[in-house]
Write a protein that binds this DNA or RNA. Structure first.
Lengths: 116, 116
DNA sequence: CGCTTACGTAAGCATGTGCTTACAATAACG
DNA sequence: CGTTATTGTAAGCACATGCTTACGTAAGCG
């Protein structure tokens, strides 16, 4: 999941994903779409996307057809949805400590340390 | 928008976001939640999150209270939704070329170049 | 005023990343 | 078989990134 987000953080890879969103495309066609970059760079980007399970690879002769894995995309979508709807359980402990901290009740709970 | 995705790609920053999702927290409280990292590192993470507009900063005395900006998160959510529902217009040209490419009609359209 | 608290920030370092150039491997074609 | 097409991959480089240590600064307290 981490890999998917990291992969998505790169604009070039997002563009690649859009290219292979509906139809599969051979690596060369994808690379040709970018005029300012080498085919090798695209190949490496495809490697990252594949490692993140964001694209599938189908071999046809010497060519490799890539296509976006919309199912994995959906997983990521739900992960993000969960991220900012739930996930409050882990906060309970900190929320209480935070409340205590924010109201500044004691202030004498630490030793004489400010920085490492 | 790019900045937001890059910021979200870091697990530590996601954790920070969850911490300040509901209640605002001072930087120190946030840093204390992570035992294996320096307060300075967290401060820098907060800087990234703030630059990406994913957190808001409110000053209270010497402290700075951080809170997740759920509105910006929502923007990012819709951006992602648009990403994989629309965005097909840019594909039209490539889709046609791809179709032609995929069915392997001519094959003699390139010059004698394989690599740079 | 000094001292502490809470925080940012500069400097440096190790590692990650996106890119290019060059080469290697496999499949089709004659 | 040799050649061409299609692709991956190793090596290297410039630059970003996450981290630590050290220092600087503004606000409160005695």
């Amino acid at each position: 999941m981490d890999a998917a987000l990291k992969a998505l953080a790169e604009p070039r890879r997002r563009e690649i994903l859009r290219l292979v969103w509906i139809d599969e495309l051979p690596a060369t066609s994808i690379a040709e779409h970018f005029g300012d970059v080498t085919r090798s760079a695209i190949s490496q980007h495809l490697g990252v996307l594949k490692a993140a399970d964001l694209v599938s690879e189908r071999r046809d002769g010497t060519r490799r057809l890539y296509r976006a894995r919309q199912d994995e995309m959906q997983k990521l979508r739900t992960f993000l949805d969960d991220f900012w709807t739930s996930g409050l359980e882990r906060l309970r402990d900190v929320a209480e400590a935070a409340q205590r901290e924010i109201e500044r009740p004691d202030k004498g709970a630490t030793d004489g340390r400010t920085d490492p």
